[in-house]
Nucleic acid binder design. Structure first.
Lengths: 341, 341
DNA sequence: CGATTTCTGATTTACGTACCTCAGAAGTCG
DNA sequence: CGACTTCTGAGGTACGTAAATCAGAAATCG
């Protein structure tokens, strides 16, 4: 049978109250007595029953998620995952509130963080914009004892406890290696695409991509990066333009969103071998394109895992327990036609 | 505030005992009354507090893990993950027992399953050997109301509730596509290696691999599969032999373990370009070989995820709740030098 | 040394649910 | 209609921990 606080009290020859004080680090226990209790805990192998403790505390974890009101598939999916988690959270004395803010709007994000601060939740998770004002607002939350976790896009130099997202430099490097090796000796230039170079994740991906291309595939000509603003129409236009200007275009790496346009442009392409294409985020469109061999590889971050990881970290932070580090590393999923889920 | 059973009782105008009878499906409630209670539950959005419920029930989940006493890195890692989970489990009223059985021994595995059956745990997880006797033993457990989950290697045709492992055919196909594309137009044959073709996962991997090679890279010559019994020395010998017999060997796909031997043989290889190499399972040896560019790609299954997934599924099964299906799909991790964790 | 403050221990209540007992109400049957 | 069964309500205890209250012990101070 698992030992309880009563067993500890009996074994240490003290009262329940004293055990409680030791367990919860409250004052009013002589060092000698404290040691007796700690010895008993050690001897009996006592571990606190979190369920009972939370029940007694009447604790409800309250977390706020701040998400950009962006309508691309990935963000829609992310929001859906937060909703799903909120529903499951009810069962486990956890309440998740969501705030939507305009995308790429520093002022709005800071305002949302300040609003969250006033509600005094146990933790806040948000998709960061990498700006000093945002960093300041996040650090203010941390000072208030509110745990802060960044989601999908990180905030450099801040004191946030965790970043629930992928290593975008590694993702870009991976894309570079795969594209370079898939191309082999096939001649022709490569087109890098981004949503915007103002966003940290896109910038980092292209950075990693560029580094690998320069280092491992130096002979390959890399065209200047084009920015499609994560917009399908604009992205499609850019691809059509590139195909026209470079009939021998050998590869495309799309680090941002708006891939529906890219795929449409590829389908409209006439004869000749199509370029090798690597994109990010598994959505309805990219999944279909991959299975129909219109593109070659999709790098993906699992929004569900990111949300669940953020919650686990916030919860662990709230009750000062440890997390399984390996479980919280968000992996770069690499999907080929062959391992589509 | 979250509604409690008391609120439901008040709202439905019945007593607490009646609400309890409805919630726990006990007899002694008229259909009319039952409906009133259910309406109140619906109206107030009541969700049972699992922590309090488990506390009241004094429930302790008991699970048994049956693991092969195999000393390769992957299995060592798997055992370590189970131990770690057991330790964390203490906190959450869950007890994990472990049984070690000789590897590849059907009789021993069946005996272990029968031993587990006698202990009447809530669930059993085990690394299956795909044999009729094992299937029968597993189904017997299921009939006793003990949830059964297969781990790493599946059991065909059984009634197990879940398989916590990767899709090995897809893994093999992925390896095929990567190897074929990495090779490009480079001439030379490819050597497939396995631990043993008697094991289902290895067989399936080679099956997927062979299918893709035949379909997408028909011109490529595939040598006959060699079996290294997951033994480094034997595997090394096979590779040396192949390198001698085929100086133009272009690629190696190792679907099993014992990759230390493979790596040693590659390092001993003289001049000339080394073959493109894809192996399974990220271990100390394969990680180092990958980062030193002795091999090109590692396909991996995350043992920690598999163990945690198995536990989540067993627990959900034990209290009749649902799991997040997407969370329980074990992914095929693809590691290049660039995205090593 | 007595008064005060600081520690320490014992006891009790509460958290939300499960489950038990018992009494009495409502319904069913002959 | 009475005897019977089936429902239902009231009330209690239990689970393991948290936290409050109060009383008594020890230490500190003037």
């Amino acid at each position: 049978m698992k030992p309880t606080v009563h067993d500890i009290a009996a074994h240490a020859g003290v009262s329940l109250a004293t055990v409680d004080r030791v367990l919860n680090g409250r004052a009013g226990v002589r060092p000698v007595t404290r040691q007796k209790v700690e010895a008993a805990i050690e001897a009996l192998g006592f571990v606190r029953d979190v369920a009972a403790a939370n029940l007694a505390k009447g604790r409800v974890y309250s977390f706020v998620f701040i998400l950009p009101a962006n309508d691309n598939s990935f963000m829609q999916n992310l929001r859906a995952e937060v909703r799903a988690a909120a529903e499951r959270g009810l069962r486990e004395r956890m309440s998740l509130a969501t705030q939507d803010v305009p995308a790429f709007d520093v002022g709005a994000l800071v305002a949302a963080l300040e609003r969250a601060e006033r509600e005094r939740p146990d933790g806040v998770a948000f998709v960061a914009i990498d700006a000093p004002e945002v960093r300041a607002a996040a650090d203010r939350l941390m000072e208030q004892g509110i745990a802060v976790v960044t989601l999908v896009s990180d905030l450099s130099g801040s004191r946030r406890v965790h970043f629930a997202g992928i290593d975008n430099i590694a993702a870009g490097r991976t894309a570079g290696t795969l594209l370079g090796r898939f191309l082999g000796s096939r001649p022709g230039p490569v087109l890098p695409l981004a949503g915007s170079l103002m966003v940290r994740d896109h910038r980092e991906r292209l950075e990693g991509f560029g580094a690998v291309m320069a280092q491992q595939f130096a002979a390959r000509r890399i065209l200047p990066v084009r920015e499609g603003r994560d917009d399908p129409a604009e992205t499609g236009r850019l691809v059509e333009e590139a195909l026209r200007a470079h009939p021998d275009l050998a590869g495309i790496y799309s680090a941002g969103a708006g891939n529906r346009g890219l795929i449409r442009a590829l389908e409209a392409q006439g004869a000749g071998p199509r370029p090798v294409v690597i994109v990010h985020e598994l959505t309805g469109a990219t999944r279909e394109a991959l299975s129909r061999e219109r593109i070659d590889c999709v790098l993906n971050q699992d929004a569900g895992h990111e949300v669940r990881s953020a919650i686990r970290v916030l919860k662990a932070e709230a009750d000062g327990s440890a997390v399984v580090a390996a479980q919280e590393r968000i992996r770069i999923d690499i999907f080929l036609k062959d391992n589509l889920p």
